[in-house]
Design a binder for these strands. Structure first.
Lengths: 147, 147
DNA sequence: ATGCTTGCAAATCCTTTGCATAGTC
DNA sequence: GACTATGCAAAGGATTTGCAAGCAT
């Protein structure tokens, strides 16, 4: 696996050890499009590493955050979700199905420019749009006025 | 107080009672620019209502959220902060001093447009920019590339 | 070998809940 | 007067921490 090598290097470069758990977690967390929670990741990893603990998953995700490999999205009354798409983008968060979809759009850059114009030294961006995704809107007959 | 009348009406319209605690909380939480946490609000309110409990503050903030009067901003490892500026805007979040500054910018509308173009039914937006505010950058000698 | 990591359990912190009392409409 | 809100204490849930044993380097 070539991606494994990338993670292993990223870890070692910062003095972290490349353990089997960390690599397994990276395989899922850094490729999944579903913005998994720590519990979700733990369940997944246990398929191949039955002994991993939730604590280890949390610790590993902290390391990944430090390495700039994931962003942590927190929500009221819900567990945090981890996003491996770290470039500026929009999170479309469906209030029905809880899916989160990343979309690229130039408005993300415009947000950054606006902050810089306000003399702010930008280190990161989080853009969430809450609402109903297309799938749920169709299913439930929620109609959308255009524009 | 004219603002009090507004809150009282908003509460009653939805079947909530206009208690002294709720009015006191609204006076601070809905006018403060500092994005206070529940604890912060509780401390403030106790100056005039020494018996208010943190639980009441949390319950009241839930009501205000329901009424669309505040947004709740959650963060990793920190308490939630409440934002009474409910129109789409940018939150500039300083990682040094923890201050949050709201700024208006058209990029907020562009974010919404982008979501709509993706066939998403928008109900709310949260735009956070993390970094260092102008004050802290000056104080600490953090230099900013202009752009 | 050395020191970081794991996994368990316990601890922590924020937030919510249950319930008797008090206040609002 | 009926019903909701308050305030206390206790519960809840996500995340973190301490520590002995196990790995990576």
């Amino acid at each position: 696996m070539d991606n494994d090598a990338t993670i292993i290097n990223a870890l070692r470069k910062k003095g972290y050890k490349a353990t089997a758990q960390r690599i397994a977690i990276s395989r899922f967390a850094l490729t999944s499009r579903e913005h998994p929670s720590a519990r979700r990741i733990c369940r997944e990893i246990r398929d191949t590493h039955p002994t991993v603990s939730l604590a280890t998953v949390y610790k590993t995700l902290q390391v990944f955050k430090e390495l700039g490999l994931v962003n942590q999205l927190t929500f009221p009354e819900e567990e945090a979700r981890f996003d491996s798409y770290v470039k500026p983008h929009l999170n479309l968060i469906c209030e029905k199905c809880s899916n989160i979809t990343d979309i690229e759009d130039q408005s993300a850059q415009e947000v950054i420019s606006a902050a810089k114009n306000a003399r702010f030294v930008v280190s990161g961006v989080r853009i969430d749009v809450r609402g109903i995704c297309q799938k749920c809107a169709k299913r439930d007959g929620t109609f959308q006025g255009s524009k």
